[in-house]
Amino acid sequence: MVSVSSTEQLLSLLDGRRLSPAQRRIGQFLIEHLAEVVFMSSVDLAERVGVSQPSVTRFATALGFSGYPALRDALKGIVLGSVGESPEEVRRNEFQAAIAAEQANLEALQRLVATPDRLVETGRLLAGSVPLVVLGLRLSAAAAHYFAYSAQRIHPDVRLVATGGSAADDVLLQARQAGARWMVAFLMPRYAEEALTAIEHARDLGFKVALITDNPLVPFAGSADVLLPAGVGSRLVFDSHAAPIVLASLLIQAIADAAPERTQARLEAHESLSETRGYYRS
Rank of each mutant, 00 (worst) to 15 (best):
Ala46Ile: 06
Gly278Met: 06
Arg266Val: 01
Gln253Ile: 05
Glu32His: 12
Gly179Arg: 10
Gly64Trp: 07
Glu89Ser: 14
Val113Cys: 05
Pro244Ala: 09
Glu121Lys: 10
Val56Ser: 04
Val43Trp: 05
Val38Asp: 05
Leu227Cys: 06
Val83Ser: 15
Leu34Ser: 02
Asp239Ala: 14
Arg48Leu: 06
Glu193Ala: 15
Gln177Cys: 03
Val51Thr: 09
Leu251Ile: 10
Asp204Gly: 09
Asp157Ile: 01
Val226Asn: 02
Val226Leu: 08
Ser55Phe: 02
Phe147Leu: 12
Ala198Tyr: 00
Phe207Gln: 02
Ser140Gly: 05
His155Met: 05
Val130His: 03
Asp204Thr: 14
Arg153Cys: 01
Leu137His: 03
Ser55Met: 13
Val37Trp: 02
Glu200Asp: 11
Pro189Ser: 11
Phe65Asp: 06
Phe207Thr: 03
Gln96Met: 12
Gln103Val: 15
Gly81Ile: 05
Leu109Phe: 03
Ser274Tyr: 04
Arg262Ala: 10
Leu173Met: 12
Ala101Gln: 14
Val171Glu: 00
Asp44Ser: 12
Ser82Cys: 08
Arg91Ala: 15
Ala62Cys: 04
Val120Lys: 03
Arg235Ser: 10
Thr7Asp: 01
Leu10Met: 08
Leu173Tyr: 13
Pro244Met: 08
Arg190Cys: 00
Pro219Ala: 08
Leu75His: 06
Ala46Ser: 11
Ile212Arg: 00
Ala224Ile: 08
Ala248Trp: 01
Gln103Gly: 14
Leu227Gln: 08
Pro260Arg: 04
Thr57Asp: 12
Pro219Val: 08
Glu275Met: 09
Gly222Arg: 13
Gln28Phe: 10
Gly67Ile: 07
Leu135Cys: 12
Val158Ile: 06
Arg58Lys: 13
Ala162Lys: 10
Val130Ser: 08
Ile31Asp: 01
Tyr191Val: 12
Asp169Val: 11
Met40Lys: 07
Ala210Pro: 03
Glu88Ser: 14
Leu112Trp: 10
Gly136Ser: 06
Ile154Ala: 01
Phe147Ile: 05
Ala62Met: 04
Ala46Met: 06
Pro21Tyr: 09
Met183Arg: 00
Arg281Pro: 00
Leu71Phe: 06
Phe39Asp: 15
Ala144Lys: 03
His145Lys: 10
Leu273Ile: 04
Asp204Ile: 05
Leu139Gln: 11
Ala259Gln: 14
Arg25Ala: 12
Gln23Ser: 15
Pro131Tyr: 02
Phe186Glu: 01
Arg138Glu: 12
Arg266Tyr: 00
Glu121Pro: 00
Ala258Glu: 07
Pro189His: 11
Leu75Met: 09
Ala22Leu: 11
Ala97Ser: 15
Asp157Met: 06
Arg190Val: 13
Ala162Asp: 15
Ser55Thr: 15
Gly206Cys: 08
Ile255Asp: 00
Tyr146Ala: 14
His241Gln: 14
Ala35Leu: 10
Glu32Ala: 14
Ala104Ser: 13
Glu261Ser: 08
Phe207Arg: 04
Gln152Leu: 05
Gly77Cys: 06
Gly165Leu: 08
Lys76Ile: 12
Val246Ser: 08
Asp169Ser: 15
Val161Cys: 08
Ser5Ile: 06
Arg176Cys: 04
Glu102Gly: 09
Val90Phe: 01
